[in-house]
């Protein structure tokens, strides 16, 4: 159960891991004993799937759910607003431009 030192796996049961420095696409990493290749560049503090995640499944970080997958996510894929949504209140981004009261 080794994890690359450029990666933070905050809990063994998490399905996302954190880049502790900027990691380019194509980086090979060992996360929790499994090897994966980053599909996209991942910036410091950002996260990527370290296990296969099915559409609709909860995404876990710090052993706590941070929302649900909006599509199937393969290990090594960048996880962010394009494939993860809140189970409480949606996140406003400039691109989506979601309107809100007021």
């Amino acid at each position: 159960m080794t994890t690359d030192s450029r990666v933070l796996l905050l809990h063994s049961e998490d399905n996302v891991a954190i880049a502790s420095c900027e990691l380019p696409a194509g980086t090979e990493l060992n996360v929790g004993g499994a090897t994966l290749t980053l599909k996209q560049r991942v910036d410091i503090g950002h996260k990527f799937a370290c296990k296969p995640i099915a559409k609709g499944a909860k995404i876990y970080k710090y052993h706590a759910p941070i929302g649900s997958a909006t599509q199937d996510i393969a290990p090594g894929e960048y996880v962010h607003t394009h494939n993860l949504t809140s189970d409480y209140i949606p996140t406003y981004t400039f691109e989506k431009g979601k309107s809100f009261a007021g």
Partner: peptide, 23 residues
């Protein structure tokens, strides 16, 4: 915040890698 239709999370938070209010 649900009534406001907007969580306490901003585009800058999202650029910085925070995806959801839970996170």
């Amino acid at each position: 915040y649900g009534t406001m239709g907007h969580a306490s999370i901003s585009p800058g938070n999202a650029d910085g890698g925070l995806t959801t209010i839970e996170e």
